[in-house]
Amino acid sequence: MTSAATIPEQSGGRLTKLYGVLKDIMSRPSGAIGLMLVMVHVVVAVASPWIVPFDFKRVDVDLMLMPPDGGHWFGTDQLGRDVLTRTLMGGREAMFVTAIATPIAVCWGGFLGILLGLAGGRIDDGLMRVVDAFLSLPWILVMLLVIVIFGSSMPVLIAALGFFYGVPVIRVARAAAHTVVARDFVVAARARGHGRLAIIRVEILPNVLDALMVEGAMRWSWMLLAFSSLSFLGFGVSPPTPDWGLMIADARSLMSVGPWAVLAPIVALSSLIVGINLTADALAKALGIDRAQKAPV
């Protein structure tokens, strides 16, 4: 066949595909900036205990609310602790908890969503109303209730975030599965007599995975905000562990005297959130989910 040579080479390997997607993300300005921001945060979170200039616990009453200078680049807080040190280390807890909770949320929400999408009919309708009802709850109050009952230990936080943030994933996965289920290749698999789980794994999951990946990235940024909000309210990380939400809460009242103490964690948190969102956008475009990016011909 003459057509063999003319088809653009595109190998089927998963690694090559991942590399292609990464390259595509980096080729977009928003994606490059976003991915860089996320990478910097991850590296800092992992390496911070070895690179910070001061001990995060060291209290020095002589150095209370010192403005930034050569010794303390970001100044000190109301207890004289180094703000740079605490900012560099302040994302560790949040990122660790959310990095575990995000896959949990995507997995259970995604699985249930696909199952509902495949089942259709009354079960689907009924359970989706439950999901809708769940989404209408003020989640922060529910989370607080859970923490009040079970305490604010790390496993509880992971489980609570993983559970609550899996609910919106159900919606996305179900919608994505719905469009796939109606297609003839799923009908063909049913007609051949494959089992339900085999159909999910072989036919549906590969077509839903892209949407789930993008959704996962978005959920991650929401979870980070939620975790920081809990800390801010005093229900997340307990002092003296450095945490952005906690730092903002502590330094908030002294904003007019020492704005550096509150600005540094805010900038750190926002840059991570913005970075994740930019990456998720670029990922969606690279995976072709974004509709505006269809090929011209």
């Binding site: 297609r183 003839d184 290749f185 009908v187 063909a188 007609a191 051949r192 072989v202 036919e203 590969p206 077509n207």
Partner: peptide, 12 residues
């Protein structure tokens, strides 16, 4: 066995 109208739809 079945063969469908549109292979874009019937092939994953």
């Amino acid at each position: 066995q079945l063969v469908f109208q549109n292979p874009d739809e019937s092939l994953n």
